[in-house]
Design a protein around this nucleic acid. Structure first.
Lengths: 204, 204
DNA sequence: TATTGATTTTGACAGCGTCAATATTTTGTG
DNA sequence: CACAAAATATTGACGCTGTCAAAATCAATA
C-alpha cells in the first residue's frame, strides 16, 4: 500500500502528483487541446508509458485536473464570500460573482476544461462531486438573497450561474466584438444581478 | 478557373462541399473532438490527402464548418424575429433568445465548435464576419427594446448574449445538477430578460 | 536473503495531420 | 482536333499521438 501517503512511495517520488502538475501546467499554457500524455510524461521526466500505472487513460488524468480545478474554484468563491461576510447578502453574491469571473479569466485553460463536455465527467466521481460543491456554493449565496424557503431558488441560481458563466466563456474565448469592454460588461451585469434574481420567475 | 461554379469541376464532382458536409456530420454526431481529417476524407470517398487541395489544413476545414454554423445560426435568429415582427420589441427579443437556445440544443456539436477558442477564429475572415453578423442580429433586437440612440446598448447586448450563451452552454455540456430542469430555466430566465436589460447599467 | 508486488521502461501497433512526388483528369489554346 | 497547362486526386512517407504487452527495476516484506 502506501499509495498516496507521504512516504515517498516510489522511484519517482510521487509521479501521480507530478503528472497532475505537468498536465495542469500544459493546459494553462496552451489550452485543453494542447495537452498530450506523452509530452506530460516527458515533463515529469518519465517514459511515455509510465502514467499508465496512475491513470488508466489520458482522459482520467485530465478529469483529475478538472476536478482539482473545481476544488480550487470552490475555494476562490468561498474566500470571496468570507471576505464579505459582514456585508449584505447582495454584496456577498456580487463579490462571489466577481470572484467567479476572475477565476475563469486567470485560469483560462483549466476553466475551459472544467466546462467542456468531454472531461471525463461521466466517469470521474471526484470530478462530479467537486463540480457539485461549486454549484452549492453559488446556490447558497443566491438563497441568502432571495430569502430562505423559496421553492424557485434553484432556477434563480441557475440563472446566476448562466450569466456569469456566459460572461466568463465569451470573454475567455474572445467572442465579444472588439468594441465591447469585458470589464464594463462584468461590472454592470454583475451589479445588476441581485435585483434581477429577485424579479426572475413568479414574484410570490 | 470555374472553381466553385456549378459546372461539376472535377473528378469527385464537388469535393469541397462534400468535405464540409462530412465534417459537419461528424461534429454533430460526436462533438468537435471527434472530427478527424482522414475519417472525413473517407466519408467523402476520397484518399486521405485529397482535402489538401481545398483546405490547406484541418483547422481551415473546421473553421469553414464553424462559419457556416454561424450563418445557419443567424438565419434561425432572423426567422424568429420575422415570425414575431408584428409583436412588441420585448416579445421579439424573447423569441430570438428562445431561438438562440433552441439552435444551440439542436446543433450541439456545431454550436460547441462555434464558441470554442481554437476554431480558426483568428485566421478565417469568413468565420469572423459570420460571427459578427450573429452579434448584430442580437444587438438590433436589444436596441429595439432599450430604445434608439442609447450609449449603453452594447453592454446590454453583451449581457443578453452572456445569459443565453451561458444557459445554452451549461445545458449542452450538462453542467447543471440533475435537479434543474433546463426547460424551466430557459423559460423563466428568458422571460425576465426584457425587463432586466432595462435596468442594467445607469437608468438614464 | 529470497520472494513478492508495485512501478517503470522498452518496443510495438494503429491512427493521426502533413508533406512531397506521382498520376490522372479537365480546361484552355494553337 | 491535338496538345500543353492547370487543377485535382493518389500514393507513400514522416513524426507525432494513445494504448498495450513484455521485460526490467526497485521497495518492502517474509
Amino acid at each position: 500500500m502506501a499509495r498516496k501517503a507521504k512516504s515517498r512511495p516510489y522511484h519517482h517520488g510521487d509521479l501521480r502528483e507530478a503528472l497532475v502538475a505537468s498536465a495542469t501546467e500544459m493546459i494553462e499554457e496552451g489550452g485543453p487541446s494542447s495537452f498530450t500524455l506523452r509530452e506530460c510524461a516527458r515533463r515529469a521526466g518519465v517514459s511515455h508509458a509510465a502514467p499508465k500505472n496512475h491513470f488508466a487513460t489520458a482522459e482520467d488524468l485530465i478529469a483529475e485536473v478538472a476536478a482539482r480545478g473545481f476544488e480550487h474554484f470552490v475555494a476562490a468563491l468561498a474566500q470571496a464570500a468570507d471576505r464579505s461576510v459582514d456585508q449584505s447578502p447582495d454584496a456577498r453574491l456580487t463579490a462571489m460573482c466577481r470572484a467567479y469571473v476572475d477565476f475563469a479569466r486567470s485560469h483560462r485553460g483549466v476553466y475551459g476544461l472544467m466546462f467542456r463536455e468531454r472531461s471525463g465527467f461521466a466517469k470521474s466521481e471526484h470530478l462530479r462531486t467537486a463540480a457539485r460543491a461549486a454549484w452549492e456554493q453559488l446556490h447558497q449565496a443566491v438563497a441568502a438573497v432571495t430569502g430562505p424557503g423559496r421553492r424557485d431558488t434553484d432556477a434563480k441560481a441557475a440563472h446566476v450561474w448562466s450569466l456569469v458563466h456566459g460572461i466568463a466563456s465569451l470573454t475567455i474565448d474572445r467572442r465579444f466584438p472588439e468594441i465591447i469592454d469585458p470589464e464594463a460588461v462584468i461590472a454592470t451585469s454583475v451589479a445588476s444581478l441581485p435585483a434581477a434574481i429577485r424579479s426572475v420567475g413568479p414574484p410570490r
